[in-house]
């Protein structure tokens, strides 16, 4: 072995902390902006944007780092939102069978916000396990279609199940209290949401930069080769799918408490499309891209609402421009210019 080999290893050791430093700087800037933001911008809007940002990050984990395009991710977000809203407002689990009117049911009253959110996350993870186990057997467009079909079934379930109140949704969900702090104050709730967002965001960063994430990237790059190296690709994909579903659930559950309602909008297929748009505009496979994309889209919906139906057209135009002119998305293009990974 030549003397150059250890030198190369040393070089690798240097390269890694460099990227980590870039991340820390970018993360610090983002956190500072988000802490200052509610004193300038309406906190409820920011909470909504943060929940969508986390949702987009969770979606990006799957498409950007495993190469799986799920077209039914709204089911995880929306379903967890219903679960959390129901538990925080009513607090019952009811498996009473229709027609015969018997079956197990428990009533324990409204649950504290963290418990309600945790329950939402667990439910979406279980749903993710079920959907993922079916969907990962197929690839590409077939994978996307299976997720879409299953999401439509979840939508129908949410339309029909009694606890979701169908078209009305679950309204005026109480935010509750956390460690004695009243979360019905918008600013308190904002920092609660921010804490959840940052935790989820850091967890995703960690997943991407874990030994597990390294295998995921290898699968994205060349699935057959990963198999030939002895990796059970399907199990890795399923694990990533469940993680992404759970994090989408975290976003949805938090959103239903922050917005104080859970509705069919969040389980609708168009929401699954919206998250694709957010991720593409921000930058697919970048860490900060989905956050930027989510803020752009939510800001558009908010501030362009006077234009009514025209917003859809504007979104379409932006999407086309994005795909034609800057395919790597806002953050992806910036990263390419600065030669950094963001």
């Amino acid at each position: 072995m030549s003397a150059a080999a250890p030198a190369a290893a040393a070089q690798a050791a240097i390269a890694a902390p460099d990227a980590a430093r870039d991340f820390r700087i970018a993360f610090a800037i983002m956190t500072a902006l988000l802490i200052a933001a509610p004193f300038v911008v309406y906190p409820v809007f920011l909470m909504q944007a943060l929940c969508f940002a986390l949702f987009a990050c969770a979606f990006n984990l799957l498409i950007g780092y495993v190469g799986l395009l799920s077209f039914g991710h709204a089911m995880f977000m929306g379903f967890a939102g219903y679960i959390a809203a129901h538990l925080a407002k009513v607090g019952s689990i009811d498996f009473t069978l229709p027609l015969i009117g018997v079956g197990p049911h428990w009533r324990f009253g409204p649950l504290p916000p963290l418990v309600a959110i945790a329950a939402g996350v667990v439910c979406s993870a279980l749903l993710g396990l079920l959907v993922g186990a079916l969907a990962i057997r197929r690839q590409g467009i077939y994978f996307a279609m299976i997720t879409l079909a299953l999401a439509q079934m979840v939508y129908f379930f949410c339309l029909q199940a009694p606890f979701t109140h169908g078209e009305d949704g679950i309204q005026s969900v109480p935010r509750g209290k956390l460690l004695g702090i009243d979360l019905s104050v918008d600013l308190s709730m904002y920092f609660f949401v921010l804490a959840i967002f940052l935790t989820g965001f850091l967890l995703i960063y960690r997943i991407i930069h874990s030994p597990f994430g390294e295998v995921l990237k290898a699968i994205r790059e060349n699935e057959a080769r990963a198999v030939s190296l002895g990796y059970s690709v399907d199990r890795y994909k399923l694990a990533a799918f469940v993680l992404s579903a759970a994090l989408s659930g975290l976003a949805g559950a938090t959103k239903s408490l922050a917005m104080q309602n859970a509705s069919l909008t969040d389980v609708h297929w168009s929401m699954s499309g919206e998250v694709v748009l957010m991720t593409l505009i921000g930058g697919l496979g970048t860490i900060f891209g989905p956050v930027v994309g989510a803020f752009v889209i939510i800001a558009m919906l908010q501030y362009l609402s006077p234009f009514g139906q025209w917003v859809t057209i504007m979104q379409g135009v932006i999407f086309v421009v994005c795909v034609l002119a800057f395919r790597r998305g806002v953050i992806g293009e910036l990263a390419a210019v600065w030669r950094k990974s963001l």
């Binding site: 890694a16 874990s210 030994p211 597990f212 994430g213």
Partner: peptide, 14 residues
């Protein structure tokens, strides 16, 4: 990395 077996430890640093 295969030496670690099929590890799913997503919480560990690379």
């Amino acid at each position: 990395q295969r030496e670690r077996g099929e590890s799913f430890d997503f919480w560990r640093s690379r």
